[in-house]
Write a protein that binds this DNA or RNA. Structure first.
Lengths: 339, 339
DNA sequence: TGCAAAAATGTAACCGTTAACATGAAGAGA
DNA sequence: TCTCTTCATGTTAACGGTTACATTTTTGCA
């Protein structure tokens, strides 16, 4: 069965294609009676306009693209869920591309498969790519870097200050040996949090030690393994607190410490970032810096839609975190080295 | 700056548009020298073909659609990650639509925004919709129901047998009062698992009790709350085992039981479904029925691509689970009612 | 050198829409 | 009755590619 086009509807209804088009797009120039009739025929034939024709002609796809290296973990899926919902509110669809292939990204963006893009690609998009996008006046919002241009902007979490505040909080509890569990160095948030942490350490006279930077890849199981390995090598001089780059690694870290018989937070404090859904239900409930993921998603979409509509220019927004103190942190009573 | 089209490249290179098209699409009919020249010019002008033009003419978008009510939680994001990767392998992109709006779904499918679709919409797509899709020979794979047609099929987890086996396993441990923590009744997997569980109970002479069906919505925190409420009303006659509809609710259940002082698995056994990433790292490590999510995603994409290529018909596949015994289950020693 | 066949390139139709403009019908005023 | 609006509808040219087919150029061989 061949696909029904606007011409089929026109023929069947005994009108011209432009009349059909006008009827379907609610252009109030038609005789109400004919409009009704056309709509009926379209309904009867199960006519659905071909979006490719529509998009080509109008130059609009009514789709926004989200380019990301991953959707794994609470941070990403929460972001996707919120953005998706916000898109629907603006009448757009959200196209999620999970890829690390820059060529795929660029050809989809520049090939106009979407009207605008949200980018979280861990710096795979470089200066040159951005220049090309700017020349084409692509509308874009970055989530993984600061940027401000005419048609492109950014909405980021202030990870630097969050890292600084979290470290300061741990120092305030009396901790002296504070380790940082990082993601990878292409991740903006991981690096920013680490630098904030370092700044706080320096400020309070605790020299940052590179041995205390542990690669946890922002995942639970890899952190679990990393911490186990760490304990094996540094068991004699374990940190009295861990600042984990995100809640997932905080959880992995706690599991590993527990497995070695340490009690959290009595022996060792652990603080995370994000405040994911399960943070309050974990045992112990996680102390963490809340990342306004939902707000970030909503703002990103709003900015993007604003730029597409030509109502706003790109701007760079930075969202503050909020320290949520729960059960995984505790004043230091010097029990980390009990064995 | 106006967008560069194939005509601009043709003019600049001093050739016709078909030559440009052939050069770019690697049609081996061109003089290598002209091909090279055209490619150079295209490169210099930063020409990227407009995908809308391409799609309209070819009738192919090289995009597959995943329509889902949610991407939240390990099950979904794992599915999305795997499918996305598998798509890339076949040269397709994956378009994720998170929506509950049937109209959005149907117009995107029938409007040919994608070449084929994977559907997990918790029965929002009804018989009539399916009939319309079949008439249009839409290529589709369902993940949330069994289906077999000429251009549409399904790849599902055998949740019924999984529920049956899990319940049988708990009965084998000596448990007599086994509760089931369900999702919602529009969810295929939740219902199937529950029915399998009921069948096992009946088979072993333990009459299923509707009071022992708890709504946990497949989420951690809502299960946590549901179990707390349950304990308040049924504390005097608590189950000696919980069969949770998925690992997330198993975790929420365990947290709630722990909060009330029960020890898992000594006092109460808890078994989940899925075997999500964190299952082995949870304390206690979760006993669960492994859901081959990755395989499901890969097979779904493979089937879909096969149908698009016209190489295969729709077929209905059912993937078996695998009971993974870890630390959250234990032979019943009658301590559930200790207080 | 001439001519047929093969190779390379160009022309134009088409994919399914929208929208600017053209046409035709009906109503109003003289 | 005749023109002038106004309103309703039809005609057609885009949008940016691909591709069947036409045309031109090159090659091989008598």
């Amino acid at each position: 069965m061949a696909k029904i086009t606007i011409r089929d509807v026109a023929r069947e209804a005994g009108v011209s294609i432009s009349t059909v088009s006008n009827a379907l797009n609610d252009v109030d120039v038609l005789n109400p009676a004919t409009k009704m009739h056309v709509l009926e025929v379209a309904e009867r034939l199960n006519y659905i306009p071909n979006l490719n024709g529509k998009m080509l002609k109008s130059g609009k796809t009514m789709m926004l693209g989200f380019f990301t290296t991953s959707v794994a973990g609470p941070y990403f899926y929460k972001l996707v869920e919120t953005m998706s919902r916000q898109c629907e509110r603006h009448g757009y669809g959200l196209n999620v591309f999970v890829t690390k292939d820059k060529h795929v990204i660029m050809s989809n963006i520049l090939g106009r498969r979407v009207d605008g893009v949200i980018i979280y690609e861990e710096l795979k998009i470089d200066e040159d790519d951005i220049a090309v996008m700017e020349k084409d006046r692509i509308k874009a919002v970055f989530l993984d870097r600061e940027f401000k241009g005419e048609t492109m902007g950014s909405v980021i979490f202030d990870s630097y200050t969050a890292g600084y505040e979290a470290a300061k909080y741990l120092i305030g509890l009396g901790h002296k040996r504070i380790a940082y569990i990082s993601g990878v160095d292409t991740m903006f948030d991981s690096v920013q949090r680490r630098e904030g942490y370092r700044a706080a350490l320096r400020e309070y006279g605790l020299p940052p030690d590179d041995d205390y930077i542990i690669q946890g890849y922002f995942e639970e199981d890899s952190t679990f393994n990393a911490i186990k390995a760490f304990i094996r090598s540094y068991g004699h001089k374990l940190p009295d607190a861990f600042l984990a780059g995100n809640d997932l690694s905080a959880i992995g870290c706690i599991q590993a410490l527990k497995a070695h018989g340490y009690e959290i937070p009595t022996d060792i404090s652990v603080v995370g970032f994000d405040d994911i859904d399960i943070a309050p239900y974990f045992s112990p409930p996680l102390t963490t810096v809340r990342n306004p993921i939902a707000r970030q998603g909503i703002l990103a979409i709003d900015r993007l839609v604003g730029m597409i509509r030509g109502e706003e220019e790109g701007l760079s927004q930075k969202l503050p975190g909020e320290l949520i103190v729960r059960g995984s942190s505790h004043v230091n009573i010097g029990r980390a080295d009990r064995r």
